[in-house]
């Protein structure tokens, strides 16, 4: 078994959305083989044993596909590694004796529920505004009856890998949700199934995004650099293009 690492944690504690919140410091012995969330499980067990309130944090699949885990670690969403979620981050990425600062996603569009958990239902409302295709129910159609060129399918799939975690918003200095909305709009605009609602969709989703209190894009590229699914910045250009063309058509 690997030697345990002694770590100092500075964790954001906040009772609820209304309270102010502050950093609390904890000491923990962690195995380098633990994931970051497992380290938090150990921390919470310690807290429960000493009769203290455990730290609330979001998690679900713990294999990097659900998008639930959040946490800004030392100022970076999902921690220092590229292309991973917090659950895929391991303590071996840190050094013995490190002080690690852990905070929630911070954006007006994502109000804190408690400690490290934030309310990301703004993303659900953006999807509900237009991130879908309408199709008539009926018999299942034959597979491959709608042909899609391989390159287009690949590009749409690349955008579709977005797990809606919100790291893009948390990394952006303007708390902009453009990478998320760009990924969803690109995915549907590329495919034949997305064509009927193509223009009304982009306008509705951008309107909802603005209404939710997310900022405008200044093309710093922080979102794409921090995206655990490495969605490229080009989806924002596609979003801009789709939006401009919809507006020019009077949508």
């Amino acid at each position: 078994m690997s030697k345990l690492m002694k770590l100092n944690l500075k964790v954001w504690r906040q009772k609820n959305a209304e309270s102010a919140g502050n950093f609390e410091e904890y000491k923990i012995d962690a195995s380098p083989d633990m994931s970051f969330l497992e380290m938090f499980d150990v921390l919470n067990e310690q807290l429960i044993e000493t009769g203290k309130e455990p730290v609330a944090f979001d998690h679900d699949c713990r294999e990097g596909i659900c998008g639930m885990c959040s946490m800004v670690i030392d100022g970076r969403p999902h921690g220092p590694k590229q292309g991973v979620t917090t659950c895929q981050l391991h303590m071996r990425s840190f050094n013995d004796g490190d002080t690690i600062t852990v905070e929630p996603w911070r954006a007006n569009g994502f109000p804190v529920i408690k400690d490290l958990t934030v309310n990301r239902s703004a993303f659900d409302r953006i999807i509900a505004a237009g991130g879908f295709v309408s199709t008539n129910a009926g018999n299942a159609v034959d597979a491959n009856s709608i042909l899609v060129p391989k390159e287009i399918a690949d590009e749409a799939f690349e955008a579709a890998t977005c797990i809606g975690c919100g790291a893009c918003v948390s990394a952006c200095k303007n708390a902009s949700a453009m990478l998320f909305v760009g990924a969803k709009v690109t995915q549907l605009a590329m495919l034949p199934q997305g064509q009927p609602e193509r223009q009304s969709r982009v306008v509705a989703m951008v309107n909802q995004m603005d209404a939710e209190g997310f900022g405008a894009c200044t093309n710093t590229g922080a979102c794409a650099a921090e995206c655990p699914k490495q969605i490229p910045l080009s989806v924002i250009a596609t979003l801009n293009r789709e939006y401009i063309s919809a507006k020019m058509n009077g949508k």
């Binding site: 950093f23 970076r76 200095k173 902009s176 209190g213 590229g221 650099a225």
Partner: peptide, 27 residues
């Protein structure tokens, strides 16, 4: 736009690592 964008995050980060993901002049 700058004033507007600056109002989108009322609670600031305790630790920031802007240079890790973007250029200072872009921000």
């Amino acid at each position: 736009l700058t004033a507007n964008n600056n109002q989108k995050r009322n609670a600031k980060y305790g630790a920031s690592a802007g240079n890790a993901n973007s250029k200072w002049y872009s921000r």
